[in-house]
Design a protein around this nucleic acid. Structure first.
Lengths: 194, 194
DNA sequence: AAAGAACGTAGACAAATATCTATGGAAGGG
DNA sequence: CCCTTCCATAGATATTTGTCTACGTTCTTT
């Protein structure tokens, strides 16, 4: 199971890991299985782990005053699940993270992550790349959210993330885009005509 | 002028810099003055510099098919201006960054930044903190954009960033929030009644 | 196989927001 | 100082999106 992670690191950084480095990484990451709907993180708790998704799909969401869920992030294989805000600031999380499909994870504590970053250059490089990618994705999504109509946002999303459209139902996608499932349904209908 | 930057680094990281380290940083960062409306980065160019704002205010925005500007980011003193996506991926930027007020910057190339990160631990730490903060801010804003009404979004923004509300006109703030200036004007009027 | 939940779609209506035009005042450049 | 540009607001109207209810289908669970 750890092989997926080691491959991920070497591929992303175009480097190799020594046996010692591999051992350190394997020691730090613990396998964990989550059944569908099981929580990885619950609102109000401090996020102590980061999870590398080996197989499965997860979602991160907040719940507003009216009890409505707002999807802030979706994760599938080779994504890192965690609430960075909570993990970095050590504050109670405003979000829930749970499994949408049965999911296999490799989890490590924030402390272990910092340790690995310090000891293994390519691990540090990998996390930097991961951070950059997250930020860029977030910026793009934000730009799309403030600039585009619901229709354009969905088109962009479907073009860039076809895997997500396949694996999550429409009401989840709609929430992720900041629209209702009804609007998404209408938008898709419009799109078919073209 | 470099003192602002050195202070910023030591404060953020709770550490001190040796004379050699300070010299490296000063050598890497070049002072630059921008007049109001002058570009720091223009759409289509690759972002080669990152700028630390010593004094002034800047904005980052895209321009859509209809020629409408969409503000994706605002910067004031002690913020770092750059298009990370372009700088990291070495792709032409989709954004413009220009000075909203006359601005004093300290600029460094991406290569110099990487060099400083490698040579100066606390510089690496500082950039990591900066990246984390950016990401968290971006996540929050995204969450707000998809979850809240225009009114709530403005309230949150005004509460969290009173300096921005003071220094940028309403149509800029409105664009930043993803609404029109007309809507923002109405929202503010409503808020006064409370 | 049956029962219940989850899901997508639809239509009618309501609410939020955008668009457009106009106006007066403030700010900035010569 | 005058002139121009920028800025905030207002009202009328159009468009987009949300809300609610309903229904048929598919998926889960027992």
């Amino acid at each position: 199971m750890h092989k997926n992670l080691l491959d991920y690191i070497t591929k992303r950084t175009n480097s190799t890991l020594t046996n010692d480095e591999e051992a350190l990484i394997i020691a730090a990451f613990q396998p964990k299985k989550l059944r569908k709907k099981q929580y990885f993180l619950q609102e109000g708790n401090v996020c102590k782990y980061v999870g590398f998704i080996v197989k499965g799909a997860m979602r991160q969401y907040s719940i507003d005053d009216k009890g409505v869920e707002h999807i802030v992030q979706l994760f599938i294989e080779n994504w890192w699940a965690s609430d960075r805000e909570s993990a970095v600031m050590l504050t109670p999380s405003k979000y829930n993270i749970d499994a949408w499909e049965d999911t296999d994870l490799l989890i490590a504590t924030t402390a272990d992550m910092l340790d690995l970053m310090a000891k293994i250059p390519s691990f540090g490089q990998m996390t930097r790349l991961m951070d950059e990618r997250s930020f860029i994705a977030s910026q793009r999504r934000l730009n799309s959210a403030i600039s585009n109509t619901a229709e354009k946002r969905y088109q962009e999303f479907a073009d860039n993330h076809p895997q997500f459209v396949q694996r999550f139902p429409q009401h989840i996608i709609a929430s992720y885009l900041g629209i209702t499932k009804d609007t998404l349904s209408r938008v898709r209908k419009q799109a078919l005509k073209k």
